[in-house]
Every structure is written in C-alpha cells, then in structure tokens.
Design a protein around this nucleic acid. Structure first.
Lengths: 200, 200, 200, 200
DNA sequence: GATGAATGAGCCTTCATTCAT
DNA sequence: AATGAATGAAGGCTCATTCAT
C-alpha cells in the first residue's frame, strides 16, 4: 500500500467503492464476495488488495463516504424553507423508497459489524461526530435567536435524539414493513416529536 | 424433528438457545459456528439438528424468546408507579449496561439478517406485532381515561414512535458509545419526548 | 445379533426389508437414510441394528429376496404357452413400466456397490448362481428333446447371454429413456435374438 | 467459471478429470471425496471449483470424455478387416482385463446416478445419441450394399440391441466374475448373436 | 499497475451407528 | 424386544487473501 495517490488510483478506488456499495446493499456485507465486487468494478480480485487493505477496509471507506452524503443531505435540509416539513418527507421515504429500505439493511449490518470490529467502530464514531456537529448546526438554525439561550449540552442532546429517531425508523422499517400502508397516520406524531426537538 | 416435546428435549433445546444466544452476542450470527455452539451447549454438532432444523431456525427461536422477554419487560413497566421514570432508567441502562450493549449488537444483526431472509423476517414481524400491541396497552394506561378519546391509529402511531425511539437508542449506542459519558444530559430531552408520547 | 429367529423377529425383519426396498427404489441406496427406513418400517433406527448388522446387510437381504422373485418369475415363464412371446412382453415393460425403471436404478446401484463391496459381491454371486440354473432349466425346456444333444456349457453360455441381454436392456433404459417411444421397432430384433438363444 | 479456456486451464481441468476418473473407478462416485481428488490432481480442493461447477459437473465431464473414447473405439473397429472377430475380442477383455472391470463399476454407478440426476441423465443421453449414430454406421458397413434395403428403424433397433448386449456383459462381469474362467465357451454364442445383428 | 490462478481453513449439514434405559 | 437421544467423522463447497508473472 503506497501512500501516494495518483488521480488514476483514486479513480480506481472509487470504482471499487461504487461496486462494493452496490453489492453490499444488494446482498449484504457478508454475502457479497470480493470476486463479485471485483467483477462489478471491472478489475481483478487481486488488484483490490492493491487499493484497500482488506474487505473491512472497503466497508470502512464506504462508511466514510456515506457519512459525507448524510452531511450533505443535512446541508440541503438547512436550505429548505420549512425544515420540519422536509424532515417529514424524509420520514415517509424511509418506508416507501425501496432504495432506502435496502440502505437500511446495510446500515444495520454495518452497525452490527462495528460493535464487534474496533477499527470499523472508530471510523463510525469519527463519521458520527461530523454528523452530530452538523445536526447541531441545523437545530441551532431552526431554534433561531433563542439558540444562544440554551446550553450546548441541550443542543447536543437534541441532536442525539434526532439521530436516534431516524435510526429507529430504519430499524422499524425492517420490524414492520407494513408500516408503509398506514404511513400517513405516523406523520402527525412524528411532526410533534420533531417540533419538540427543533423549536424552543 | 418430532413435534412432540418431552421435558428433556425442551431442556436440551434451551441449552442450545442459551449457548447460541451467548455465542451470537459475543461473535455475531455469521461468525459463530455451529460447532462452537454445540460445544458450549454440551452436545455434538449433529445433535443440534435433532432439535432445530438449521442455524436459521436457532436464531428464529432466539428472536421469539427475546420477544417474550421484551413483552415481559413491558408488563413489568406497567406495574411501576411512575412509568415514565422507569422508562428513563431503561434508557440509561441501554448505554451503561454492557449486557445491553452486547444485546444491541445482536439485535442489529438480526434486523440486518431479517431484511434479507424472508423466513426470519416473518418471525420478526410476528414478534413485533405482539410487542406493538403490548406497547399500545401501556400507552392507553398512561393516557388514563382520555385514551378513549384518541383514535386507535393515534395510539398505534405513538407506540411505533416509542419503538423507534428505543431502537434508535440501540443504534446510537453503537454509533456513539461515549454517549454514556454525557448520559445525564440526555435525560431531560428524552423525558419530554416520552411525555409527548405517553400523555394526552 | 442372536441367531434364534422367532416368528415375530422374522416379521420385523420383513417390515424393514419392505420399507428399505421401497426407500432404496425411490431414492437410491446411498440417498436413503436408515432413519427414513426405520420410520417407514414403523420402528426405531436403533432397532434395525438388532435385526441387521448394518445398512449393507439390509441391501444384501434385499438382493437375496429379489433373487427369489426373479426365480419365481422364471418359473411363471416356464408355465406360459409361448415363452418367447412372454419374454417379449417383459422387454416392453422394462421401458414402459415406471416401477421397472425404478427397479433398474436400484439394480444398477447394487451392481456398482457390489463391484466394490466383497460381501455384497458374494451375496450377488450366490443369487446369480440360482438364477442362472433356473434360466438353464428354462432354455432346456424351450429347446425340447434336442436339449440333450447340446453340451452343458452351450446351455450355460446361452443362459448367460440371456442374462446379459436383459441386464443390458436395463442399462439402455437409463441411457435412452426415449426408447419407449419407438419401442415397437425393437420387438422383431429382440425376437430373433431370443429365438437364437431359446431354440436349437 | 470463465468460458474462455487457456491451454493452462485446459491442462488443469484434465488433471482433475484424470484424478477424478481414477478415484471414482477405485472408490466409487459417492465414496471419492473432492479433497481426495484435489490431492491426486495436485491442487487445492477450492481450485477444483474454479475449473468445475461442482462434483456433478466433474462426473459429467468424465461421461463426455468416456463417450468420445467409445466413439473412437468404434471408429477403430470400423477399420478392422473382420469386425465381428474384433468385437469378440472386445467381449473377452470385458472379463479378463482388470481395467475394464474397474470401468464397469464406474459405468454402472454413473447409470444409477443418472437415473436420479436429471442433469447427468441429459449428458448421458446426449453422449448416447452420438454412440448410437456411430454404431448404426458400423452396422451399415458390415451389412454392405444390402443396408439400403433395410428400414432405418431396423438399423437403429439393431444398434440398440448391440448396445444392450455389451452393457449387459458389463453387468454380468459383476454378477458372475468367474465367467472369465469359462470365457471361451461364450464366444460361439456371442458370435452367433453378433452375426445376427451385423449381417443381413 | 494489474492479473487471476491458487490456496486452505472453515462452514453447515448429514447420517450410519451406538448405547443407556 | 425396543427406543430414540446422542455421537462425531466426513463431505461438498465458499471465499478472503496471496503471489508469481
């Protein structure tokens, strides 16, 4: 593993990440084989080991990449006129959008894996720190001027609970897939919860 | 696989379930081998297959068993004077209690597995239906007489969000294990959320 | 293994033989498990080992039993007015009768097994000696008075070739199952071959 | 499993086929383990699965290879001055040649296997079609000019019975290995049968 | 940089057989 | 005589990883 990263190398890495993300989402982390990923990435299995240390290293890179995507989505959210409404829409798609459901599976598997793999846990925590900071930003924004009256710990706690809420919906989308059927009923309750976390 | 279950057979099954639950919690579902479980259960690998159809069947039995435990915990909760306080205590232990953290890993892995294993998904959904009903009971109780004024769908939605909240905390305990350090800060926010779900 | 054989024991043995023959025919010798046979025979797996030494011993007993059936069929044949026509009918059923086709599979498997299992080979050869003798009888009968003019070795050779012919048809029924479709075309050729072996 | 086959890959495949054929002949299809074959082929068990889909695929390849060998032997036969005499020699070797006897075991086992394994059955039937066609050629040749006067179905029927005869001898070589002792006696009868099938 | 042939440990599962009762 | 719980060796197969080229 050389530390120099030419453009070419970076592009090759990205090919692997794209292929792996797709394979992991489709088949799960354990079920997706390196051979399968290599094929989808248009290179030999051996070469993946020139770009990544091992399979765990690939998933770690994906976690970091996904984290960036989450951060970006929060940034997008900040630009919305009605943040709360936008979040509700997010809630719905967690159950309706099949892509999101597939994502849920991978997210859960990564969390499970991380709870037993310290290296992955470290990556996840670093990523989480970034997301948390961004969510705190968002909350400060929705709070408006009164944000300054609240202690930082309160903001952090709200951000955490917001995270718990969305992660929990991911879990529930597996536990109760038929949720989608009665999805509309959830909105008002979710709305009240969000308001409680986002407004003074 | 006989359908009759003598006391002896039941005890043997339980030995496997205990050994498997421990192994799954310690090493994960995929990493734990049947040989390992058999050894811990004090029997031969082959004999496990006289008691269970296969590895999936073992995890399914564990899911059902865990579901019963959750239902029981809710029943215990209903007997508490201050349900809300008891729930807050539950929240804390999710981060402090190392047993709970180990449980979290298994829970997440089961959810991930279920999202790609229809048989397990079915078991999980059946279990979930029971838990949901019980949580609705609990909510009706905390709502008191005004429960009758709320539509059933509202109660269900609250129960679901309560589930999401606790499942979300499980996920967050992996994402941010250092949460325990600042655990106390979370309590007030959690308390407000719970009150919103449990009171009129 | 006691050497005394009460009526009850004999009956129990027969139950096993019937169950085993059925299972072997249906699933093959290797694929049929002792547990499966025990169930079909209405007894425990363990008890089979009170009646037979092992799985090979069961198949050996079946071979002996089948041999007796073959001998009986030859005796029946001898009573026919037109032996040759009766044999032709036999030829047809080898392809048409699905029971016979299943038998063919077992016969072939037993032969394969015997070629590597000396004990089974011995049983098979003893059985074969009986069948051969009976076929020689049959040939002598069809030859009529002129049988005495032929050397014994000639009769034996004819009997052997008759055996080869029928065993060969068994093999061909696997190699070319579509034979049944054009079965009628074979009759005349078979008839000539049989006449060559059965008449002076 | 790539569809391209380099020389190297082809050679490796052949190593497996040789090792497997030997192991199957020596120990039988079910008794021979992939590990055993891999060792004899000078490679790891895992690598066999880069060259063949599974154990069945290996036996299928052997069947195809053996079929080609049979076809070749028929071609050789066609070049003989006295086809009938050459066939008689073939008959003898079926009992005398220990290689042939070992072959017999494998042949029988393959037939048994095929009768319960549709994929193998398909391979066998395709192979058989080729052999049958070649035998028909041979018969036409021995019939000489009069072949044209016979209907195609008659030729086919003769070819089939010829196949049955040789397959039957294979079976008989297991049923009655002592046949070799009196082998000479069989020749005249066999000769007459062959003449009946090969001449007008 | 890139290949892909090759490894080999390890997994789940089956099943003939035994033995305490 | 009869049970059936229990064994444990063995089997086919997968796959992350390596390394000669």
């Amino acid at each position: 593993m050389s530390t120099v990263s030419t453009d070419r190398t970076l592009a090759r890495r990205q090919q692997v990440l794209d292929a792996a993300a797709s394979a992991f989402r489709r088949r799960g982390f354990h079920a997706a084989s390196m051979a399968e990923i290599a094929k989808a990435a248009g290179m030999s299995p051996g070469h993946i080991y020139n770009l990544f240390q091992n399979k765990d290293d690939v998933i770690a890179a994906i976690v970091e990449h996904d984290c960036a995507a989450v951060v970006q989505r929060i940034i997008d959210l900040q630009r919305e006129d009605d943040v709360l409404q936008a979040m509700l829409a997010e809630t719905h798609s967690a159950f309706d959008d099949s892509t999101k459901v597939a994502d849920a599976a991978l997210t859960l598997e990564i969390l499970a894996e991380a709870s037993r793999n310290p290296a992955l846990a470290a990556v996840l925590q670093r990523a989480q720190a970034q997301v948390l900071a961004k969510v705190e930003d968002l909350i400060r924004q929705t709070l408006g001027p009164r944000a300054e009256q609240l202690p930082a710990a309160e903001i952090t706690a709200r951000a955490m609970m917001l995270g718990a809420l969305f992660n929990g919906l991911t879990a529930m989308s597996v536990r109760q897939p038929d949720l989608a059927t009665m999805g509309t009923e959830i909105a008002p309750v979710m709305q009240r919860l969000l308001r409680l976390l986002l407004t003074p």
